[in-house]
Amino acid sequence: MKGAGLRVYTALYLVFLYLPIVLLPIFAFNDSTVIAFPLGGFTTGWFAELAAVEALHAAVLTSVKIAVITALVSTLLGICAARAAARYRFPGKSGILGLIMLPLVLPEIIVAVSLLVVFLQIGLPLSALTVILGHVLICTPFAIAILNPAFQSLDVSLEEAAVDLGETAWGTFRLIVLPLVMPGVISSLLIAFTISMDEFIIAFFLSGSDATLPVYLWGQFRFPQRLPVVMALGSILVLLSVLLLVLAELARRRGARRRGALDTGGFL
């Protein structure tokens, strides 16, 4: 049979990719502190325990707060940069854009340590704020990379037409540019949010006493009996991620249908 090898390869690949994720909920409902087969009985106890840990709640809250602000700020910066790259010519443009994109390829540990040195030097206390600064630094290149094509493919004459019909520059941006690049903006917000949510190294160095979720989890691994609780938390996070992704994709498709653009893939 033609392509049988390829089919087996695909199947194995998918199993390798998703098996660990499928294991999460299995152990989250398993009535044993040991993460191993054979399974014990069924329990929802780990979820109940999850609800009782104060430090965990604080970590989740910190992470969400940091991720939301990071997503907003880096997307805003991304919009400005992508817009400038698409519309204006200025000296040193490619050099400047290259520098902005650099954190994309720099080892994160280097970025984290450098930032730590800088913050200590200028006397900025480590907190959620310093994590946000670090996360904006690494998320902005992603935002630009996502937003750039959206702005590049925007027809200049649409903006000129709006101005010609009496709109101001700001009105044109709000009424014409923003709706047309909205799918890119939503993608950028989501990606930045996700990156910030599970970023560990920068958060580990810069969070001070405001532990983010990954930093908190890292601390929990020292106590094996807490592992099932972590599994329960992981299951919830996976569920939320899938939900978020589906919502984003629905929004994107609706946008694409309204503009009659060809549906070219997107996330899903």
């Binding site: 000129e160 037409a161 009496g166 009659g260």
Partner: peptide
């Protein structure tokens, strides 16, 4: 936006 002129663009520039 403040001139008494209006332009019909070559590609029409219809807001999609």
């Amino acid at each position: 936006n403040r001139r008494p002129t209006n332009l019909v663009f070559q590609n029409y520039a219809i807001f999609p």
